[in-house]
Amino acid sequence: MMNINRIISQLAGITLISLCSFSNPAIAADDDQFKHAERLYDTYCVQCHGMNRDGNGLNSTYMSVQPRDHSDPKGMGDIPLEEIAEVLKKGGLAANKSVLMPAWGEIFSDEEIDQLTAYLRHICKCGSN
């Protein structure tokens, strides 16, 4: 009887793990797709935009203009992809935004700018364009 119970509980465990693994394949794919962009974000953007991507980074307390909340679907969703890419590449001033957002075009390649732009759309959960 104990053996049967053990087998049943093991089967239940395996089923649960399988369900967790396959219930949302899109998330797994996203993780791979955004892996490099996430690494870039963690290296360069988190210092101001924060670990939670909500604008509350380590430096934000000391800044005269608060960094943008990248987790805000409304605020981020209203910005066209082209403008996000432009600001990443040329800095805030290029789009009449804060001078404190620097130009990263000397560090990120055009491909990385595109990846980061897509990543920003991903983390605000505000669509693909």
Partner: peptide, 9 residues
């Protein structure tokens, strides 16, 4: 860094 009350610390 870690999460603080409001911002990262």
């Amino acid at each position: 860094i870690k999460k603080g009350e409001k911002a990262d610390v």
